[in-house]
């Protein structure tokens, strides 16, 4: 190899270019340092999202999320409406439940529907019932108490109450009291105030002229 000129006789640039110089050492280090850094960075990018503790993250699974089954649940509900004659009626219930917006039926419990009109108040109370919103029809079940000033009591399994026309109808066996006495029949229809009643099917009426109308 040609004789090696002594470092002192070279210009700083030439000296810097000599093998083993400071620049050379720096480059040597960088030769492995930079790829290593790049590698670590790549690794960090991959690993870091999995490793780091996420404060809040969730995956919304439509079926696991708690969905309220019914569309509307009200406690101590009150529904106000108008009858055909424009008289206001209201239905008060312990709980009112509408399963879904598709079916316009509200299931009521411990309900009492009342209408005040010129013939006085009429009130239907029952442990359970269903209110058909579109038809303004109340289907009451369980021992139905139907009170009106006419002293009109119905003990029936289920009674259909048409709020709009203020009429009631029951197709199952029914008993109770009318303004004139205790009765029993297969079916009954009449107006809420008890002024006009029709009963069909082995009707039995007991007119008690002394102890008063309809008292047991």
């Amino acid at each position: 190899m040609a004789s090696r000129p002594t470092p002192s006789s070279l210009s700083p640039r030439q000296r810097a270019a000599l093998p083993g110089s400071r620049h050379e050492a720096l480059m040597g280090q960088l030769k492995w340092l930079l790829p290593a850094l790049a590698g670590m960075l790549a690794l960090a990018i991959l690993v870091w999202p999995l490793v780091a503790a996420q404060e809040f993250s969730f995956l919304l699974a439509k079926d696991q999320v708690a969905v309220a089954p019914e569309r509307l649940k009200v406690t101590r509900a009150e529904y106000r409406g108008k009858t055909a004659a424009g008289e206001a009626f209201s239905i008060i219930a312990g709980t009112a439940l509408q399963r879904s917006s598709a079916d316009p039926v509200v299931e009521l419990s411990r309900l009492s529907a009342s209408i005040d009109d010129r013939e006085g108040p009429s009130r239907v109370t029952a442990p359970k019932g269903r209110y058909f919103i579109e038809e303004d029809r109340l289907e009451v079940s369980g021992p139905v108490q139907l009170r009106s000033d006419g002293g009109y009591r119905i003990d029936a399994a289920t009674v259909q109450v048409d709020m709009k026309r203020r009429t009631i109808r029951t197709d199952a066996a029914v008993s109770g009291a009318t303004p004139i006495g205790d009765f029993r029949a297969n079916s009954l229809s009449g107006d809420l105030a008890g002024k006009r009643i029709t009963m069909v099917g082995n009707v039995h009426l007991r007119i008690d002229q002394r102890r008063g109308r309809g008292s047991r």
Binding site: G194, K195, R196, H204
Partner: peptide, 15 residues
Amino acid sequence: RAPVDIDAARMDLSD
């Protein structure tokens, strides 16, 4: 004034 018991197939009351 004794109680009157009535049995029938149908009854129409108009108070």
